[in-house]
């Protein structure tokens, strides 16, 4: 039975009819909305490539049915910031030249943005405990530096955070 669902993604309201009521949010975002920054890595909530924010909380969207997004505020990397108005995390990622292949990076950036929202100046331990994504290219040390830099950028207002809303 198809289900109708209204999703608010990056401040835009979308009325969707899901032919497959179990369609994961990842695929609704990628295939129905055409937003490709959120990546498929494992489909089992094990790698973090599909991380996006639901009401400001990081969620592995491959394992989150799209219908549960009803009434919630969803933010993907495209909604975090743009080249013209980068989020501090994106600005820091640019300055530290973090990505290699880049495939894991949207997930890391979303997880980092969520962390910074909760902890404005995270310690290395905060990073270790909260950022559990997988990167095969080995950008870990640059990611750590970039998260610290993003915290500084956000505090000094050098990059305007287009803060992901929490729907509250």
């Amino acid at each position: 039975m198809p289900v109708k669902v209204t999703l608010t993604v990056n401040k835009t309201v979308h009325h969707l009819e899901l032919e497959d009521p179990e369609m994961p949010l990842l695929w609704a975002i990628r295939d129905l909305l055409g937003l490709k920054a959120t990546k498929f890595g494992c489909g089992k909530a094990a790698c973090g490539a599909c991380t996006l924010l639901v009401d400001g909380v990081p969620v592995r969207s491959c394992s989150y049915p799209a219908r549960l997004g009803k009434g919630k505020t969803i933010t993907t990397l495209e909604g975090l910031g743009t080249q013209a108005e980068p989020h501090p995390v994106q600005q820091a990622w640019i300055e530290e030249i973090v990505p290699q292949c880049g495939y894991c990076q949207p997930g890391f950036m979303m997880a980092a943005a969520a962390l910074l929202k909760r902890v404005s100046n995270p310690t290395d331990d905060d990073i270790d405990q909260n950022i559990l994504n997988v990167c095969r290219c080995g950008t870990h040390t640059r990611i750590r530096k970039a998260i610290h830099k993003a915290a500084t950028l956000a505090q000094t207002g050098q990059a305007q955070p287009n803060t992901p809303e929490d729907g509250a």
Partner: peptide
Amino acid sequence: VARVDLAPKVYGDPIFGLDAE
């Protein structure tokens, strides 16, 4: 110099094989 593919990778452009449609 900074990577030439830095911006597409930081702003989430659909550049990967699986992004094609």
